[in-house]
Design a protein around this nucleic acid. Sequence first.
DNA 1: GATGAATGAGGATTCATTCAT
DNA 2: AATGAATGAATCCTCATTCAT
Lengths: 191, 191, 191, 191
Amino acid sequence: MLIETSLKVVAQRGFDAPTIDDFISAADVARGTFYNYFQTKDELLTAMAGHVADVIDAQILPRFVGIDDPARRIAIAIHSFIRISSQDPDWGWILVRSLPHAGGGWSEEMRRGVLADIRRGRRIGRFRIASVQAAVALGIGTLGAAIRTVLVERTPTDFSRQIVAMTLQGLGVTPREAEEVAALPLPEPRE
Amino acid sequence: MLIETSLKVVAQRGFDAPTIDDFISAADVARGTFYNYFQTKDELLTAMAGHVADVIDAQILPRFVGIDDPARRIAIAIHSFIRISSQDPDWGWILVRSLPHAGGGWSEEMRRGVLADIRRGRRIGRFRIASVQAAVALGIGTLGAAIRTVLVERTPTDFSRQIVAMTLQGLGVTPREAEEVAALPLPEPRE
Amino acid sequence: MLIETSLKVVAQRGFDAPTIDDFISAADVARGTFYNYFQTKDELLTAMAGHVADVIDAQILPRFVGIDDPARRIAIAIHSFIRISSQDPDWGWILVRSLPHAGGGWSEEMRRGVLADIRRGRRIGRFRIASVQAAVALGIGTLGAAIRTVLVERTPTDFSRQIVAMTLQGLGVTPREAEEVAALPLPEPRE
Amino acid sequence: MLIETSLKVVAQRGFDAPTIDDFISAADVARGTFYNYFQTKDELLTAMAGHVADVIDAQILPRFVGIDDPARRIAIAIHSFIRISSQDPDWGWILVRSLPHAGGGWSEEMRRGVLADIRRGRRIGRFRIASVQAAVALGIGTLGAAIRTVLVERTPTDFSRQIVAMTLQGLGVTPREAEEVAALPLPEPRE
DNA sequence: GATGAATGAGGATTCATTCAT
DNA sequence: AATGAATGAATCCTCATTCAT
């Protein structure tokens, strides 16, 4: 419960600013109650990061099922993140604040998956990239900035498609194919 | 003086964590001295942001002189940022921490310049982008993540070139031209 | 049960430091259970003091039966206290912590008995003391410090005998008689 | 200043009970001022212990000058402690609370001096004691209890003399000599 | 009886800011 | 200008106690 209600607090005020008081009044519990569940503010924050990762996993991983093309998988991930963020800005802010923290908000599974997709994409010639490091920087960096843009500015309905297309182009996919993949609808979650 | 010594503090501990004490012991001045120069902690932080913007401007703008090609100008900016960051990690961290703050570390001139270059690049057909918003997200996001990568991981000597090439490709420059522009040496500062 | 398990806690951490939590986890009962037996923490502490006094009484008073000589009675008390403490350090610590508290750990019967013995010893010329007050200070003070010594340092097997002899000498018994009385074995409990 | 004013607080409420609030309102300073001098409550307590040891040293050691007889030195120490305590009960309580803490209130010099006196007294036949350990227990224990008695009960004017005499007897000095030494006036502080 | 979640007053500590020297 | 002692509001954390199940 505290984790759920604290999400909104972090969404609005970030990870550092909120005080215990902010969290407990969001959850409408007493001071002591907080400490029955978490020994420290940091412990709550850590628990939240895990929760966020779980929720995101549950939203995205099932859509990967049966999709092999690395380009499509990257597209699905980006589309999902941006869609979540525009539908629920609180989640968007959480993501924006988690992404840089390298470890906050990303499950190990997701992290490894992204790396694996990029590597495989390069191996099979789907991507033309000089280094995985640079590709990750482009992908994650662009995604984070895109989410922030969605939250802060007014964006066109096809903004997500634009971001996916540009990212794929950056990874060396031809503009035409990039556009194609970017335009495909988000597959339904399976299994 | 306080601004200079405070830069290292912010580089290491971010904008929020440091206390007045951290700043004054870094500058080796007394508590009261701080308040002779700045009325509040925030005032120092703001002054620092301005200073950072000035220093960055001084490093980058003179290299733009005489360069018209938007792709080259983008390349010069990215190369410069990454070079600064790898030569002086303190500055790298300052930049990483400033970039998201939208307003910290970026002079108005730089901000307008980037936007103008992207717009012009699109108008003259140098870039093929669906929207300026998306292009800015890709450029800024990738840059920030790239700087972070340089600071945290071991990166190859041509990492900067890779990032520039990928970014330009993302903006719709053909891979071949992107590589070419990315490989050009940083022009000397002029005027 | 709670009283029993709390003794060890108090032995190790004193009367003030332990929290309710210390007591209930020592007894392995739930928070609420504690309050089914005692209304407050103080109530437990008071009950413990009574329990300690009872246990000590049961250990010492039966050994007084049939012994009239005040010097021997004092000797028996000191020997008993020190023996208990060296056999079970937990009890030793309880006693050390109770003695100063004037009322903790001493039954009224014991207190009155000691005073009566000292007075009678003076009246019948067994002790040569200027005042009962001073004699009590010497007896109780020395006993407390001796118990502490037994708990904290390594002491010879005849330490208890030394303490008894010195105490009796202090009370004006001749060194020779003091040694004799100190050397007598602890009488079996009777009745 | 805080140390001085805190002495009375500890005298009245012990070492554990007082809160920071008690100390600062005794000193009539603000909460933050406390932390400009001591990082933690424990630090104040430690500083106080050092201060107490210094003050006691200054009161007692100068009276030892030129006195070689171990019995007299012990007598001087006991007389001094009890005199201090009856003249200023606050100091008495501090001492009572410090004595057991083995390290609180006793300077290293004082501690070593007492041990040395007892050892030398035994060597030169002034004391007849079975062990130094037992002698220390008798001396310190009796002194602590005597101080407490002075603070809590009404005591005769020669109470201090009685305690000294009994203690020396306990250490094996003949009653007659013990009385003599106990009756000698406290020598003036020298040097 | 036993349980344990919830409470909130109490206490420790931090830190930006003021101000007299 | 430089200093640094003093301030007190804000915050974190502890723990005795209550109470519904």
